[in-house]
Design a protein around this nucleic acid. Structure first.
Length: 308
DNA sequence: GCGTCCAGGTCTACC
DNA sequence: GGTAGACCTGGACGC
């Protein structure tokens, strides 16, 4: 792979490159197969035509004028249109243009968020690199302990993901929907330990490769219309659709609902799942359009909050 | 060592 | 339209 583009992306301050691409909770930035070393990330995504693209990125600039320097790698030189698409995706995933100052103003008046914005100063949530990557994460998270979700994703990238060599490091991308759509369900189940999720993954892959709105197109829809479309994907229910949607959302599962119930002072019951609608309503009212960012901040700062 | 339980949801059948 | 039951797998736990 050769460098086909160098980008210097100015960020709206406050901005933390490290907290954005290498979050404390340990979740990946673009793919579970990326490498973080010496304050640099080696990662990758797919161009709109599905070509594997390598990315090397590191912080640049100063605290007052933060920026990120990225090198984009590809086997073949991308077209002008593809280059624009790739740089837009990278900037979106880095969240460099997001102005989070209104969120910090809200957070400084909020007893729950006051501490987390200090602990994670400048962190961005970022957007998913593509719809299928987000679907893979949300499906593998369903009904499984986190360690198993990680195993399933690692098996997917090992068996079906594309491999990129960058600076003598091997980066693995999540598989394309076309690759999963053409793989037998039984094989997915056997090789990746997906269990009943293999059916959902294959059907979602088929639906997306047959033509489905992209994240950019879903963003242009109303929040409700985007949710309705996402829930047409087999195996994507309300929780997964809220994880994926590019609109503000507050996806709660049986684990996170207990954390927010504690933070909101709501008494836990024997059936924590039944608290989800109530806790969502409280979060919507309290954090409104910033609720997704509030969720990302809280879930990445559990050790300091003393919950979880 | 073996059996049982259950985990960061969703779909389907049945009422 | 509401809800119980089934669904893969593997680690934790009790015996």
């Amino acid at each position: 792979m050769k460098i086909v583009e160098r980008l210097r992306l100015a960020a709206v301050r406050p901005y933390s490159f490290e907290l954005t691409v290498h979050k404390p909770a340990g979740w990946h930035w673009l793919t579970p197969g990326e490498v973080w070393e010496d304050e640099t990330i080696w990662s990758g995504l797919r161009s709109t035509t599905g070509k594997p693209i390598g990315i090397r990125a590191r912080a640049s600039g100063t605290t007052l004028k933060p920026a990120v320097v990225c090198e984009i790698f590809s086997k073949e030189p991308p077209s002008k249109y593809e280059r624009l698409q790739i740089s837009t995706k990278v900037a979106g995933a880095l969240g460099v243009s997001d102005d989070i100052r209104p969120f910090y103003t809200l957070a400084n008046r909020d007893p729950i968020l006051k501490q987390v914005v200090k602990d994670l100063y400048g962190m961005r949530a970022g957007v998913w690199p593509d719809l299928f990557s987000a679907a893979v994460l949300s499906i593998t998270l369903q009904m499984a302990p986190v360690a198993r979700s990680r195993r399933m994703m690692n098996a997917l990238i090992e068996n079906y993901g594309d491999r990129i060599e960058l600076d003598r490091k091997t980066i693995r991308l999540l598989p394309s929907p076309e690759r999963i759509a053409s793989t037998k369900e039984a094989e997915l189940k056997r090789k990746c330990g997906l269990g009943y999720r293999a059916r959902a993954l294959k059907r979602v892959a088929r639906q997306i490769s047959a033509g489905f709105p992209t994240l950019e197109e879903l963003k242009k829809m109303s929040p409700q219309a985007a949710m309705t479309r996402l829930m047409e994907l087999y195996g994507i229910g309300e929780y997964s659709a809220e994880m994926i949607t590019p609109h503000p959302s507050f996806p709660l599962d049986v684990w996170s609902v207990q954390i927010f119930a504690k933070l909101f002072g709501v008494k836990l019951t024997d059936d924590p799942r039944s608290l989800i609608p109530r806790i969502k309503k409280l979060a919507d009212r309290r954090w409104e359009k910033w609720r997704w960012l509030a969720l990302v901040y809280v879930l990445n700062d559990l050790s300091n909050l003393g919950v979880g």
